[in-house]
Design a protein around this nucleic acid. Sequence first.
DNA 1: TTCTAATTTAATTGT
DNA 2: ACAATTAAATTAGT
Lengths: 184, 184
Amino acid sequence: TSHNHQDNSNLGESKKASSFSIESILGLERKKDGTTAAKPHRPWMDKCSDLGEDCNPCLRFPAISYAIPLFNAISYPEAEERVRKCENYFAVNEKLSYKRELSWYRGRRPRTAFTRSQIEVLENVFRVNSYPGIDVREELAQKLDLDEDRIQIWFQNRRAKLKRSHRESQFLMVKNNLSQNMIK
Amino acid sequence: TSHNHQDNSNLGESKKASSFSIESILGLERKKDGTTAAKPHRPWMDKCSDLGEDCNPCLRFPAISYAIPLFNAISYPEAEERVRKCENYFAVNEKLSYKRELSWYRGRRPRTAFTRSQIEVLENVFRVNSYPGIDVREELAQKLDLDEDRIQIWFQNRRAKLKRSHRESQFLMVKNNLSQNMIK
DNA sequence: TTCTAATTTAATTGT
DNA sequence: ACAATTAAATTAGT
């Protein structure tokens, strides 16, 4: 991850809480090799590229623009109406806010919330074929009204989950066998 | 919760029948027992494997009998109190205890109560590095007498908290700007 | 009630 | 495609 907080020298913390060496901590902020971080892969953000801003999400210094989609947040329902009235103030940014509403903050695809029926179908397919080809993925995408990308990522994560559970159960089995042998 | 087996009529329309078509897959499948049911990720449960296989949590057989020695064995000091509470719930009010019982035998990790000094160190590190690598996490774990997993989870939750607070303050800022603009 | 530790899983990155 | 992480959204304990 490329989070450069080199300009955090204004912390002014003279207190030393422990024996951690700050230099060792700071030394870890650099990537292993000095290569510049590759541009993140965010195809759905192409419309934002004309802004000429850094689209790399930064936790410590978030661009204010990524807060704009907040108006659609369910946590602040009262804001939506007010913002709708005042949309003119943001209209100077053309369709900027529209594009940015696509993601909660710039730079990351909004998390897809699969419906239960979608999950059911995906799980059923996964049971018989954990590696669906492009044709099955496209078919699923069409029938489930999802992007094919989402299907592929879902199967990737599902395979990882299965592998992890296998690893753990095998580990437990081995440990239990060991314990039983020790009891005997 | 079990899934309702509604026929996905909108999904079941057959167009073509390849060997891995969704229709054929869905036609084949009929829930065949939960042998491959996903297991929760509970690596700390490995520690109780020397008590026997009954310590492996099983959602289908929520026997409280194996849950109690489980937590006693790992030397959680609050275990006895929790067992007493649990027994009390079972004896007095079965219905109200349902959720607690569920979380009990399902084996959620007992909530870690960080000490003030631990929090202080973690916060100090967080100020200069919100993304500590594995080596810093291990160093922290050793010095604070915590599992590395706890460190990682703490930083995850801390980043989420920071982001949340940023979102809220920015929301307030934009809201105030809007109010000012409306007055004008 | 608020805060936060813990869990699950979608998304990202690098290999 | 996999492995390791991160983020987002919850659940639940204090």
